[in-house]
Amino acid sequence: MSVEIVSDLMRDYIYRLASGGQRTDGRALDEPRKLVIEKGLITTAEGSARVHLGKTEVLVGVKMATGEPYPDTPNTGVLSTSVELIPMASPTFEAGPPRPDAIELARVVDRGIRESKMVNVGRLCITPKEKVWVMFIDIHVLDYDGNLFDAASYGAVAALASTVVPAKAQGVGEDFPLPVEHWPVSVTVAKIKDLLLVDPSLDEERMARARLTATTDENGDIRAMQKGLSGSFSYDEVKRVIETSQKVGRGIRPLLQS
């Protein structure tokens, strides 16, 4: 996310390869890196998942707490998402309060989950207007090798899917799995000159002038989008990104569900 220099030699190499439809790690332009998800590693959390997207590694924990609902949604549970870009994950991350990068990342992941209605928040009400379940999604980036948007989103979705609501401990009934109803998949595309690359690696991401994340559901409908970086997309490119997102999403969704 922070600016680090990519040598001209590497830039030329990446672009030249990509112009011929290839990438430095052997992928096609519309091919994401290998995704490995392990659920339930953290027993102190109500749900958790560790995600490897290529060499990017993210650990997500879900903590469930009871709290007050928002006044305008008195009967629904609350979702809260935050990201920590801890200094161990990259030489470019610094300790301290979350910077705009981390805030944007958390909000885009949150948007995909919220707008897809992944979790039926209507079933997370304990006492209307007084007490509901609050889902705290905490995304810990452990190793940064590009495309945190998708890695964090997959981690959050997988962690939620593994979450058991600790109702018994709170004295409000029996424990139950979080009511998951939809499966949003975030797919991010980086634009390098005129080329669109799915799931950018670190070098690709640093070269990119623009980035577009589209989150689609199991029907291929769009639930969230976010354009980033200082470049631009033509409308045709935006449409291509969405079509790619739908296609790549279909391949990734089973991995999140399993």
Partner: peptide, 25 residues
């Protein structure tokens, strides 16, 4: 950017089919 047609900001939340998105744009 009206003169070039470049899209320099794009966000979306909610639920749109691909068709609806194209209508909206």
């Amino acid at each position: 950017v009206p003169r070039t047609g470049e899209i320099v900001l794009l966000q979306m939340d909610g639920h749109l089919t691909y068709d609806e998105f194209q209508k909206a744009m």
